[in-house]
Design a protein around this nucleic acid. Structure first.
Length: 178
DNA sequence: GTACAGATTGAG
DNA sequence: TCAATCTGTACT
C-alpha cells in the first residue's frame, strides 16, 4: 500500500475542507522505533477569530493558544479540565487562528474521544508547535483510501453550548461512517 | 492575589 | 449524575 506523508499544501487549504479530507488519513506516532498508528475517523473544525467556540475568538493571542496561529501542519495541543490533552492540527496560512481537532481514531475504544487519542499516542506538551511535515516522531499519512462524500457525516460540535446557539449549531464536526 | 469555568472522561 | 484536576482569564 502506498504511504505518503501529507505535505504543507494539504494543510493550508480552507479549514472545513481539510477537516473533511483528514477523515480516512492515518496518524503515525513513532516511539522507540515502534509505530503507533490509527485512522482518523472524527474531526472538528475551529475557525477563529470569528468562531466564538475557538480559543482565538476575537483575535486573542495568549501563551496557551499561540500555536493556533501557526501555518497549517503544526500541532496545537493543550490541557482541558486539568487532565485531558486535546490534539489539534493547525490549518490555513500563518497568522490565521484556524485548526482541526482530532476527536477519534479507528481503534475500538482505545481512542474514541479527544482525551483518549492523546493518551494512546502518548502526546503531551512537548509536542506543542510540532511540525507534522518535518517531525520524526509524529506525522500524517495518506494511504490511498478513497473516502466518498456519502461516508462523511456532518454534525454539530460538542461541548460548546457556551458559545451560543449560532456557533453551537454549526455542523463543523465530521464523522467517518465505517 | 483570588475566583471560576472549561473543545472530557470514567466511575457510580 | 458527578468528581477529578489545573490553566487561562477576569476580576479585586
Amino acid at each position: 500500500m502506498e504511504k505518503k506523508r501529507l505535505t504543507r499544501s494539504f494543510y493550508t487549504k480552507p479549514t472545513l475542507k481539510v477537516a473533511k479530507e483528514l477523515l480516512g488519513k492515518y496518524i503515525v506516532r513513532k516511539i522507540n522505533n515502534k509505530n503507533l498508528e490509527g485512522k482518523i475517523i472524527e474531526t472538528e473544525a475551529y475557525i477563529g477569530p470569528q468562531d466564538k467556540a475557538s480559543h482565538a475568538y476575537g483575535g486573542k493571542i495568549t501563551s496557551r493558544n499561540r500555536a493556533e496561529y501557526l501555518v497549517g501542519g503544526h500541532i496545537y495541543i493543550y490541557l482541558v479540565y486539568g487532565m485531558y490533552w486535546q490534539l489539534n492540527i493547525t490549518t490555513a496560512e500563518g497568522g490565521k487562528p484556524e485548526c482541526v481537532l482530532i476527536r477519534a481514531l479507528d481503534l475500538d475504544k482505545l481512542a474514541n474521544g479527544p482525551g483518549k487519542v492523546c493518551r494512546y499516542l502518548k502526546l503531551n506538551k512537548s509536542f506543542y508547535g510540532e511540525d507534522l511535515t518535518e517531525s520524526k516522531r509524529i506525522w500524517l499519512e495518506d494511504r490511498g483510501e478513497k473516502i466518498k462524500p456519502s461516508q462523511i457525516i456532518a454534525t454539530k460540535r460538542i461541548g460548546i453550548d457556551y458559545a451560543g446557539p449560532y456557533w453551537a449549531n454549526k455542523k463543523w464536526r465530521f464523522v467517518l461512517k465505517s
